[in-house]
Design a protein around this nucleic acid. Structure first.
Lengths: 202, 202
DNA sequence: TGCCTTATATATCGAACGATACATAAGCCA
DNA sequence: TGGCTTATGTATCGTTCGATATATAAGGCA
């Protein structure tokens, strides 16, 4: 969009990359726990550069949230939408949930929104609206996937899409919690089969 | 136990009450967000009194966690165990989950462990073990309740107790998340019926 | 080449942080 | 009552917090 502007000295860091690093710090340490030193160090820039490019700490935080929401960074949903066979799609969704709940890319575990951002709803202005919108968007995408299967005839017309979308959502929350608490992959993966069956049962 | 000790000047504050107030502050503001000023003010004591009675901030935090776990402070589980009829018990469990997810006693919403403490697992030593133990304890209590129904004959012998206990656990997590994000009671309560049926279906 | 704009680097600001030193007060026990 | 122990109140410690003032460097444009 405005990547053609060229007035003034150019930055010598990548805006998006710095934002991702900032998100990783917030994800790992939380909003209050992430100090400006932590942030500038991880982003590879100095304090004044941070303030010039992103505003203050809170604005930077909101920008990381928006980036997470817009970048399709939620792997489970991407997996769910990317697989044609609905049963496999649910399986992949759950597998991806468990993976992201246990693996820690750069120390960050779970879902940025569900595990980290949500705790700052009452504390940081601007967070509440974003989280609520993200939940609605997530559930809507899950519902849409089921509705699509109904149209294809793979699922019966009376399949309770909304109810099962909510179920997927809840299961994700449960695994995120368990993952944060230290449960390992194997312990969670054992239940995948039964859970797929539950989601599709009628 | 040692409430009969009488050497030295007695405190002029209630230990347990102060602990509850501290928990409320952590619950609302998070570990890092809760300053010593917030804590001492809510507890009604001065800094030195806090340090003498509870140790430093981290030890106080761990004590609030232990208190929460030992005091049967998780209302949904208490409700689930207190109702004889299993269908009603599940209904009450869900209703209580929704209530605690939306109402805010002294500003604290959701589950202290699931919504607040869990975010400090990698940050504060001693938290991880406690959260993992709490999850195991919760699931075990849910399972035990189902097993009890099987023995009574109310549920079939092949009822998947563990699977459904995990489901209740996950649903709780989902509602806690939604509540934190600002969903209101009514929006959640509509689904209770369907969810009870899902938990008991076979 | 100067001029304007924007980014960088250094140094540091006042405020709030977690945590204590010190002197005093309150109850038990000899 | 005098000594012991523990809690309280005041005042303040050194550190780190988030955030900036200032001066310099880098590029586009005239």
């Amino acid at each position: 969009m405005n990547d053609t502007k060229k007035i003034g000295r150019p930055r010598n860091f990548d805006y998006g990359e710095a934002l991702v690093q900032a998100m990783s710090v917030f994800w790992t340490k939380g909003y209050d726990g992430a100090s400006l030193r932590d942030l500038t160090q991880a982003m590879g820039i100095t304090g004044p550069s941070l303030y010039a490019a992103f505003g203050d700490k809170r604005e930077l935080y909101l920008k990381t949230i928006d980036h997470y929401c817009n970048a399709d960074a939620c792997a489970p949903i991407v997996a769910f939408e990317g697989e044609d066979d609905i049963e496999k799609a649910i399986h992949d969704f759950l597998a991806e949930v468990i993976r992201s709940a246990t693996e820690h890319a750069s120390g960050a575990k779970g879902c940025f929104l569900a595990s980290c951002v949500v705790t700052t709803v009452g504390q940081v202005d601007g967070v509440a609206e974003r989280v609520e919108a993200a939940i609605d968007d997530t559930e809507q995408r899950l519902v849409a996937r089921f509705e699509c299967e109904i149209e294809k005839g793979t699922l019966p017309p009376d399949f309770p899409s909304r109810e099962r979308a909510a179920l997927l959502f809840d299961i994700r929350q449960g695994y995120m919690f368990r993952g944060r608490a230290g449960w390992n992959k194997d312990r969670m993966q054992k239940d995948i089969g039964a859970r797929v069956r539950m989601v599709l049962s009628h």
